[in-house]
């Protein structure tokens, strides 16, 4: 995926970026993605069976270079239950970023993060893909069973960034996704730059890539 970054250019030089949401059933994956794409909360979702697709286009300013690029984000939503694992792991390989979600009011969903990480490292395109760990339902303060300190500690040990969010209020939802977009784009640009260095200026195949900047 990453090595063929310039193949990913579509529609006015947007980067096509694919994310997958993972986590136990009922943690709020569908609601988080819906809040991100539609900007509102819908509490009326039935359980996801199989895999669902959403998309959103945005212009992202890179946190390091300040470069702006158009991003066509494809978001895949998965079913949480064990039965659907074989179906969903097939998607891991084509995914650039993983949104790993647990429910702050559900201990088990937090404990299972470890096994989701294992799944992910086994099936993803590389050993250390870009991941963000999201503790959802931060608005239900009274019902929290996982403290922020504990979640941060776990995220630190796993080597992934951690954010708390609420699909219900919309708090931090966009920030979570954009943080992951940023990480993925940094990685992509790094690969593209490396490629250019190796190939040298004479054979530069990626005039397109340099013109990605749509300032």
């Amino acid at each position: 995926m990453i090595t063929s970054a310039h193949e990913q250019l579509r529609h006015d030089h947007d980067y096509l970026v694919k994310f997958l949401a993972l986590g136990n059933s009922g943690v709020g994956k569908t609601s988080l993605l819906y809040q991100f794409t539609e900007g509102c909360f819908n509490s009326q979702f039935t359980s996801t069976v199989g895999i669902d697709f959403k998309e959103k286009r945005l212009v992202h300013r890179c946190s390091v270079t300040g470069r702006e690029q158009g991003v066509h984000l494809q978001l895949w939503d998965t079913a949480g239950q064990e039965k659907f694992r074989s179906l969903t792991t097939a998607f891991y390989r084509n995914t650039m970023g993983f949104i790993l979600v647990f429910d702050l009011t559900n201990e088990q969903s937090f404990l299972d993060i470890r096994s989701w990480m294992e799944q992910l490292r086994t099936h993803a395109y590389c050993e250390s893909p870009d991941i963000i760990l999201v503790g959802n339902k931060v608005d239900l303060t009274e019902q929290h069973v996982v403290s922020e300190a504990r979640a941060r500690d776990a995220a630190f040990k796993l080597g992934v960034p951690y954010m708390e969010a609420s699909a219900a209020t919309g708090f931090n939802v966009t920030a979570c996704v954009l943080a992951l977009v940023d990480a993925v784009l940094l990685r992509m640009n790094r690969v593209v730059d490396d490629t250019r260095l190796t190939l040298g200026k004479t054979v530069s195949p990626d005039d397109e890539v340099t013109s990605v900047c749509v300032c």
Partner: peptide
């Protein structure tokens, strides 16, 4: 086919 038919068929179109 997994993108759509998985749900169509296993749930007998109920969703």
């Amino acid at each position: 086919e997994q993108y759509f038919a998985f749900r169509w068929l296993s749930l007998l179109f109920s969703q």
